[in-house]
Design a binder for these strands. Structure first.
Length: 460
RNA sequence: GUGGAUGUAGCUCAGUAGGUUAGAGCACCAGAUUGUGGUUCUGGGGGUCGCCGGUUCGAGGCCGGUCUUCCACCCCA
């Protein structure tokens, strides 16, 4: 037999029990809060038709899609000419499925497919892995989980305020307090673009100013210059972006600067309204920061955009989202606006690990390990396990008849707090020997007393 | 996709200008302790030095390719 070194593909990970307990804690917290806000669960396949996926994430996104080869002889419909035309022409002939890249587009597909059964506004949450053929780095994986919550079929800005509230509640529960929720509006970006005299270059502008915080004003200027922005418009741009102060101060200064721009004025009004709603909805301080330089990549956003960043953590954003006015139109359902948000659990995990925010999870381990003394005591041990479980204890049995030393060592390594020793002496006296692993102390008594002893020590 | 760094035992790492049977700590297993874990002591197992090829009398160390991981770009959760 040819053996191979076990390995998993680049950018993917196994999650062992210790990690899963913590991941589940995050997922459960998110799920519970989503449900508390009225979002209902949805799952969609890992695979989508490639036509559903392409064209929604920009050229970059299409590059990062995992495509799946057609089954069987995937070359049967391909001839030399196809190959000579390059991979872009070849691709549709050899692949008609792909792994989903995010949860929003499959959601839009679902909504379009089920439009007659859905009551709008429709709120759903979805917690599933997505795949991107990106080059892995810190906090960046090829398979990772997203936790989306979206409302579709309402243009009300209350939906945006709800999302602000949702994010605050979840992060507070997870113990992540040192974060900011950055917010901007695509119309404001369009307004800025108009104001600096480059209305047709919003997309390029967005990509550039999104990096402002990371690479600084000088490098951004140079990049814009290279993209054909005039020195005048660049100067004007930074006059706008330099505006600082409280959210209200920035908003009022910007409305002066952008007063000639219709989309700019509308965007600012929307942000103002969202803040007004959020002030009355969010429990405590909502930690929203209006940031005109926030751009975000995904091309389907049209309204408000959000991004959550944890302060002093170089991991990028742990979540983001925004409003999309027309996502379902490519599936034949125009005029349905939606807004959504997504947490990246993997990054939330990394941050919580670094900040040591995970609680101890003692409830996930067994309370007692029942040992098997020798072949003659197996049946008794099984019966004891049955009775202890009947009484509600979390109990496991060491399945092999090996030295007590080994069984105790197993309990020690798994941090199981109690061990029951059941040898011929105990069986003869109808007693159980209970060893407290922390103190090393052990006593013998009947079953009910043993259960009480375990329960009383546990509850302390 | 582009560029840079990295890869030696399960883990963290040594390994001097290429030169015998590649080391340590931790972890693991066994015994001291035949009804008892954590400490201690004694002993033991485990490496085709990421993979493939090349140079050389000889390669863990040099060269080429490839894969992994990390970093930067790109982009993003």
């Amino acid at each position: 037999m040819v053996t191979q070194k076990p390995a998993i593909p680049k950018g993917t990970r196994d999650f062992g029990p210790a990690i899963m307990v913590r991941r589940n804690y995050i997922l459960e917290t998110i799920k519970k809060t989503y449900q508390q806000f009225g979002y209902l669960p949805l799952e969609t396949p890992a695979l989508e038709n490639i036509s559903v996926l392409t064209g929604n994430y920009g050229d970059e996104g299409d590059q990062l899609l995992f495509k799946i080869l057609n089954s069987g002889d995937f070359l049967s419909k391909v001839d030399k000419a196809d190959i000579d035309q390059g991979y872009k022409k070849l691709l549709p002939k050899i692949s008609n499925k792909g792994l989903k890249y995010d949860l929003t587009v499959p959601f839009a597909r679902f909504v379009a497919m089920n439009r007659h059964e859905i009551n709008f506004p429709f709120k759903r949450y979805q917690i599933q892995p997505v795949w991107r053929a990106d080059n892995p780095q810190m906090g960046r994986y090829r398979e990772f989980y997203q936790c989306d919550a979206d409302v579709i079929g309402s243009e009300s800005l209350i939906c945006e305020a709800e999302i602000i509230s949702l994010i605050n509640q979840i992060l507070n529960q997870l113990g992540i307090h040192d974060f900011i929720l950055k917010m901007n509006h695509r119309s404001i970006l369009a307004g800025i673009s108009e104001e600096i005299g480059a209305p047709d270059k919003v997309a390029v502008l967005c990509v550039a100013i999104d990096k402002l915080e990371k690479i600084g004003q000088e490098k951004v200027s140079r990049e814009l210059e290279a993209k054909g922005f005039t020195p005048n418009s660049i100067t004007r741009l930074f006059e706008i972006l330099e505006v600082s102060g409280t959210n209200q101060e920035i908003l009022s200064k910007l409305s002066q600067l952008l007063k000639k721009s219709t989309p700019g004025t509308e965007g600012l009004k929307a942000i103002q309204q969202i803040f007004a709603y959020a002030d009355n909805l969010v429990i405590g301080d909502h930690r929203v920061q209006f940031d005109p330089s926030l751009a975000r990549g995904l091309s389907y956003y049209t309204g408000a955009i959000f991004e959550v960043q944890v302060n002093n953590q170089e991991i990028g954003s742990i979540g983001g989202g925004g409003r999309y006015d027309d996502l379902t139109s490519i599936f034949g359902l125009p005029g349905v606006s939606g807004v959504g948000f997504s947490f990246g659990v993997d990054r939330v995990y990394d941050v919580m690990e670094k900040l040591q925010l995970f609680p101890e999870f003692q409830n996930t381990q067994s309370q007692v390990l029942v040992t098997i003394f020798d072949d003659t005591t197996v049946i008794h041990a099984l019966q004891i396990v049955r009775e202890l479980r009947k009484q509600g204890l979390t109990v496991e049995i060491f399945p092999d008849t090996v030295k007590l030393k080994k069984q105790l060592n197993h309990a020690h390594k798994k941090s199981i707090p109690f061990v029951i020793i059941l040898g011929p002496d105990e069986i003869a006296n109808n007693q159980l020997t209970l060893k407290n692993m922390a103190t090393g102390h052990q006593t013998s008594q009947d079953l009910n007393t043993t259960v009480n002893l375990i329960n009383s020590t546990q509850s302390k």
